[in-house]
Write a protein that binds this DNA or RNA. Sequence first.
RNA 1: GCAGGGGUUCCAGAGCCAGGUCAAAUGGGCGGGACUUAAGAUCCUGUGGCUUAGCGCCUUCGGGAGUUCAAAUCUCCCCCCCUGCACCA
Length: 916
Amino acid sequence: MSQLDEKWQERWQKAHLFEPKDEGGEKFFLTPAFPYPNSPQHIGHGRTYTTTDIYARYMRMKGKNVLYPMAFHVTGTPILAMAKRIAAGDEEIIGIFEKIYGISRSKMAELTDPNALVRYFSEEIEAGMKKMGYSIDWRRKFYSYDPHFNAFIRWQFEKLREAGYIKKGRHPVPWCPVSNAAVGAHDTQGDIDPQVEEVTAILFPFLDGYLACSTYRPETIYGVTNIWVNESAAYAKVKSGGRVLYVAKEAIPSLSMQLDLQVEGELSGREMTKSSAANPISGEKIPVLGASFVNPAHGTGVVMSVPAHAPYDFLALRDAGKLGEIPLKQVLRLDGFGAFPAEEICRRMGIASQSDPKAEEATAEIYKKEAHTGVMVVGEFAGMRGVEAKERVRQKLLSAGSAIPLYEISNGPIYSRYGGLVGVKVVEDQWFIDYGDETWKQKARECLALMKILPEKARKEYEYTIGWLKAKACTRSSGLGTRFPFDESKMIEALSDSTIYMAFYTIAHIAMKMKPEQLTHELFDWVFLGRKSAGLAKEAEEMRRAFEYWYPLDSRHSATDLVHNHLTFFIFNHVAIFPEKYWPRQIVTNGFVLMDGKKMSKSMGNIIPIRQAIAQFGADTIRFVTVSGADLSQDSDFNRPAAEGVISRMEAFMEIMERHAKEKDGKVGMAERWLMSRLHKRLLAAPALYETLQLRELSLELFYNTFNDLQWYLKRAEKPQLREFFELWVPAIAPFVPHFAEEAWERLGKKHYVMDAPFVSVAPFPKGDESRVDESLEEAEKYIGLLIEDIKSILRILRREKAGKIEIFVASAWKRKLREIAAQEKKFDSAMKLAMADEEIRAHAKEAARVLQAYMKSAGALGKTPAEEFELEALGSGKKVLESEFGCPVLVSKEEGSNAPKAAFSLPGKPSILIS
RNA sequence: GCAGGGGUUCCAGAGCCAGGUCAAAUGGGCGGGACUUAAGAUCCUGUGGCUUAGCGCCUUCGGGAGUUCAAAUCUCCCCCCCUGCACCA
């Protein structure tokens, strides 16, 4: 297998088969999402690239000048984080590299340098792609941190700024206080993605300042009966923005990421309870009480108490023995509950105290119900649903200065790889790309409407995403990539520098040979926008021509997970920068690859590195299995039996070809005509399937079902001759299994029936010929097939191996008439009436009633009635097959005139059988 | 919660848009048989139940209700699963 793969890969390379000229004929430009080289690739990565490759190869065979380029995305922090982890001797990652990918420890020692790491893994990935036989033009390779590419991205941002889409503001980000940097999932212990959530800190007048109570449910301010503090914790008096606040001491580190705080004094939780506070809405005086459930490190460490609706508050109140003393106050009405849902649920669940773990469950249930089905019964928002009131109350408190917005990590506590507890920092000087801009959105929608989306059902996802996209933070304080042109201390983050790089491919092979400083904004203005200015580099004209030739992008490919970000940004940025004639034409998204039905994951260790898989099964097998296992949008499954099934069929195809396709075909008989009819039908259907990437359907048609046809044909043909068949079939399947196809193409030698080409990879795609499709022949063959089934099942029931003689009776004319009536009338009564009007049928009234009854069951499904001549003809030609199949004489006669009782069982299309 | 995608016979997975030929393709697994010294591969065959010289009956396509001569397919309600809701590549 691998020898064969290499043989053809070398020859393709030597012939520069996949390096198109920047001119000539109809072009087709397609790109998959470029890989991120911080690990080797596994079998799952291969699906998108294989899908793209099959498309590229098909288009090439359709005579298009195809460009399929590749580059590497290294932007952002994951590569840096990976190098650091290796340097730090992180056993988890080292173990994965060693066990799954077979990278030696000495090799890993070199990968502590990010550049070395990029080089190593990108070479690894490139080698893998070559071994998969991808028809990539590697001359255009670049890395997203190359200075040439940087120049291009800086130009892009200049254009975005000119269009008014770049903005500056403040932004909350997950932050590690130890490394003093923003953190993403790859920076946290356990790779947890920190979720930032907005909360509200309501300020309750207290002593000389305010108690800051952070809450998710500001709307319950109307039901506050008291304030909770943790009596065993330390509290602090702090000054912030000219105001005095009281918060837990432990909360200060995380709060100071967001607020400017000066500590002015300290007091114990117990001291706090000696004073009372006031409700900022009503001015009502409320006590400050102690509760053990209050976590001083969480939020502000001060909690407002709404015992009617919050189970913890109710339980703490009960634990404090204050139930009777402090009356509960209802805020929301909830179906199925009385005035105080928290109380009810605590009693119903039998929760003992605030330290009972069931309290958490009760809280989750009540919160969820109240938020969505609860209706406010107090205050100015009475009658409003919980969720809506929440937002309104929050805004009201914020604008009145009675609350401050805070952020927290909702899925915490999360620790960074450097040991810090991840908090939320509000970053000033954050730059954004404003995807919330309405006129921009409108243009994006226009582009989407013009594009083909495969599978089409994904279109709604794009529409939805365009709808909800808001300003996106586009800079980071660290990472690889391109410096932000309007603040050189910042880096452009990874989803923002990968939106129009497809345009760079069109000139990359020229640009990468130039000096980076030659790649000026003026040059790009000319190349991409046609705005000419003086003194451009001498390559400018060639670049302009290349871009104008290849753009727009004909097809963009990725897995489905990029729809909500990258692919939508891709649309936005194209419409922002390029004129309409260069807007992308199509986006194709595919599902993932499962391993034995399960998601691949590092922790399960069920990842097959792509190069290992190729070594084991061969490139064609991996290609075939990953794309043919499921519809485009569904996850496909990779498993050994499927892979082996493909291998054995390929071998069988090759063997049959070697045996029966040596010479030009001789006299063509029924069997050959039948086989070619089947093949041409499939060839006729193939183009539409290839164009819409229905690879599963194609693989079924051109591979599995065709294989079954061949089996039948071999059984049927007296002297098999398959020369024409293989000359047509090999190129048809070539996009899927190019190495196999090249080998077969070569072994076929000089072609007799199709146009020859040095490589099947660039041979014309075989045309289906309608005149070769013979439906009646196929019908006849099917008829014989069914008959064989029937005879076999009768033999089985008789427990007989062999028949002495088989007699077949073809149904009489009156039954055919009856069947026609049944098919037309569809209702028993009227059909019967009509039938009885026919003399011939009436002569068999009793039997006619029985037969009609049977037909009525599937009245509309009857289709056209086979003619008697058809059946006799089919039987005439099929008789030989039947005789050889069963090794006995076969007699064919008509039901009419026969006195065999069995004969009466015959139906049109379903002759009766008598075995003796 | 919002948005999208799903729930099919032992498993995977078609079919559903355009209702009937659907007990439901195809592959896998499993049972039986052929071949073989044997295993593997390959081939034949079975794989909801009951029947039976096939052409037959009953029950089934997440649950329920409806439309229709006819529903896996159309309509309505409900249940369950997956993905996304960003600043992360």
